[in-house]
């Protein structure tokens, strides 16, 4: 099924965008989740999706991450040797392999992204075992390395995640995803569950890792400060549609759409 190597088996081609989202619409019966969203994402690029509650951010993210098939439109990912391929035309086995090697997904609630019943080390090592690593010592070494990189105390490697603080659980979730060297990370409100002081440290860590590893990422947030700190580019959503997009600083410093202007000013007021 997979090689015994710890690195991701799917490398993206260096040509063209890493990801192409083309006119993606997701309906829930009569209700609109998101409508007609298109954009390209390049290697190493961080994109934030912002907007009020119910604007369709999570719906869009799940469509892009292969977790929810769009009602219309395509999501293409740049596979090695194959170039852009519609992810919903891959076999289920291939899509799941892609999702746990070349991609990562960080949930708002760490309990959704962690195995709470097994040790921190097992959480980080799981992906390695899933792609066929069968050497305990090597798995353990790699796990320790990633715990250090997300600033977790390696002496906690055998402790249950339930004994970790919220910030530590989020860092564990990130390490668990990065262990296969993914090219693309999806994050849904990664800092929203944390205290403000803890948020700042985690954002710092995320920004450092993304640039160091050349990670591309799509970060959903309702917090424009998070977008400002992490993202090169920003999409503003309202009622399921993208109303404005561009370089983050440009959108935030000189918003064009009245809704964006409102969002930015309400942030300033807060």
């Amino acid at each position: 099924m997979a090689t015994a190597s710890a690195s991701a088996p799917e490398f993206s081609s260096t040509h063209g965008p890493l990801l192409r989202v083309n006119a993606v619409t997701r309906l829930y019966g009569e209700r609109t989740g998101c409508r007609n969203v298109s954009f390209d994402l390049h290697q190493g690029e961080v994109l934030a999706i912002a907007g009020e509650s119910g604007s369709g951010k999570t719906t869009l993210l799940n469509c892009i991450a292969g977790r929810s098939r769009p009602t219309a439109g395509t999501v293409e990912y740049n596979l090695r040797h194959e170039g852009l391929r519609d992810i919903y035309r891959l076999s289920e086995a291939r899509l799941r392999l892609l999702a746990r090697t070349d991609w990562g997904f960080v949930h708002q609630n760490p309990r959704d992204g962690l195995r709470i019943d097994v040790s921190a080390g097992a959480n980080v090592g799981e992906r390695l075992m899933a792609i066929g690593d069968r050497h305990y010592g090597r798995i353990r070494d790699t796990t320790g390395d990633w715990m250090r990189r997300v600033e977790l105390d390696t002496s906690r490697i055998d402790d249950a995640p339930a004994t970790f603080s919220g910030g530590m659980q989020q860092r564990l979730q990130i390490a668990r995803n990065l262990v296969t060297h993914p090219r693309l990370m999806f994050m849904d409100e990664p800092t929203a569950s944390l205290d403000v002081s803890v948020q700042a440290r985690l954002l710092d860590l995320l920004r450092g890792l993304a640039s160091e590893l050349g990670l591309a990422a799509i970060v959903v947030t309702h917090d424009l400060a998070v977008a400002r700190l992490l993202a090169h580019r920003l999409l503003i959503m309202k009622s399921g549609e993208v109303v404005e997009s561009g370089l983050t600083d440009q959108v935030l410093d000189d918003p064009q759409h009245p809704y964006t202007q409102l969002l930015v000013s309400s942030v300033l007021q807060a």
């Binding site: 289920e92 097992a122 490697i157």
Partner: peptide
């Protein structure tokens, strides 16, 4: 889909 990594997670936990 032959996704059996979880079984090794159990053995990993034993050893840990």
């Amino acid at each position: 889909l032959e996704e059996y990594g979880l079984m090794h997670v159990k053995l990993y936990e034993d050893i840990a």
